[in-house]
């Protein structure tokens, strides 16, 4: 803890500035619902990516099926509210708990092994969940997806505009960011970094590596469940195609492009890859070519991701200056 004391204030400033920017954003864009809408999706993606980054960057495990947890969260909350008239605030803990426990069950047999077995298991799991969601029409009433998911209200205050929802999403996202930061700086975080560095060494020192990995996996799934909840009630309609393999891969890409083992990297990665396709709309048919090419170029020239490259850049400019500490890893 003592070691982190020096870092914490600057980190707190970082978060404060970040929150200020978020609060000012609607003003900057003249409250245009389109930009707000894009930022809502950035927020939702940030929540999943932060969790996935904890798993990939700190626990050293890849999940190729995180879209499935997103989907389970969305469908759980959507079905409970739209079909059974449940309040969204009751559906939220249900969605989060369900995704976390499903993740726990999937992780239990695979995380005890070394290597990327979790990646393969989650790949299979993700595909199975996607196919099951696709076949759900007897439950959802329509083969295209689930309709009529109600919006969220806090007491009598209805979150019926994009701006109100924007604040809800980002409040949750900032909460998730702070929680994750605390986890990273806590005993669990240190244990996790030990696991990532050398699992054998960590084990020798008495760290129950499998347990920690499992906990982080469940936590990251819970984040995805939360994001699914936010997505479902924002859209009002969910279809299976959102939760397929493609999105799982996009999420992994966001983590790596943003920077592994970096909380801020997750925000940056989610923002970059959510906004990029919107910018590429002008390119029409060429957009996916440019998208693929950019992805390759970013990884070739910045193999450690956007954040690390930025930090290195700052460091080389103000060598040995404490400013570079602002971006913790």
């Amino acid at each position: 803890m003592a070691k982190n004391l020096r870092k914490l204030p600057s980190g707190r400033w970082g978060i404060a500035i970040f929150i200020l920017c978020l609060a000012l954003f609607p003003l900057l864009t003249v409250n245009n619902p389109y930009y707000i809408n894009v930022m809502v999706f950035v927020g939702i993606n940030t929540i999943i990516v932060v969790g996935l980054n904890l798993l990939m960057g700190y626990a050293g495990q890849i999940s190729l099926g995180h879209a499935a947890f997103y989907g389970i969260g969305a469908y759980c909350s959507g079905l409970l509210t739209a079909k059974y008239g449940c309040s969204p605030w009751l559906a939220l803990p249900a969605a989060v708990a369900l995704t976390a426990s499903v993740a726990y069950l999937i992780g239990l047999p695979t995380l005890r092994l070394k290597g990327h077995y979790l990646a393969m298991a989650t790949l299979g799991f993700g595909m199975v969940v996607y196919i099951v969601l696709r076949q759900l029409s007897w439950l959802t009433g329509d083969s295209s997806g689930l309709m009529g998911i109600p919006g969220i209200s806090i007491g009598r205050f209805k979150l019926d505009t994009d701006l109100k929802y924007y604040f809800l999403v980002w409040t949750m996202a900032v909460g998730v960011l702070m929680l994750s930061r605390n986890i990273v700086n806590s005993r669990i975080g240190r244990a996790l970094r030990a696991v990532e560095g050398s699992e054998t060494a960590a084990r020798t020192l008495g760290v129950d590596t499998a347990r920690y990995k499992l906990q982080v996996f469940a936590l990251s799934a819970a984040y995805a469940g939360l994001a699914g909840f936010l997505y479902a009630h924002f859209m009002g309609f969910i279809g299976p195609s959102t939760f397929g393999f493609k999105f799982s891969i996009e999420l992994v890409t966001m983590v790596v492009v943003g920077g592994m083992a970096s909380i801020w990297g997750s925000v940056l990665g989610a923002a970059f890859l959510t906004i990029l396709p919107e910018c590429l709309r002008v390119a029409e048919d060429y957009d996916i070519v440019i998208y693929g090419l950019l992805l390759m170029v970013v990884m070739i020239f910045m193999p450690k991701g956007l954040t690390r490259t930025t930090v290195d850049l700052l460091k080389s400019r103000w060598t040995a200056s404490p400013v570079s500490q602002t971006n913790e890893e």
């Binding site: 992994v252 957009d287 070519v289 693929g292 992805l295 390759m296 990884m299």
Partner: peptide, 12 residues
Amino acid sequence: IITIGASIFLKG
């Protein structure tokens, strides 16, 4: 991730 980028690129 680079191979994923390449896959998207080639498909495009």
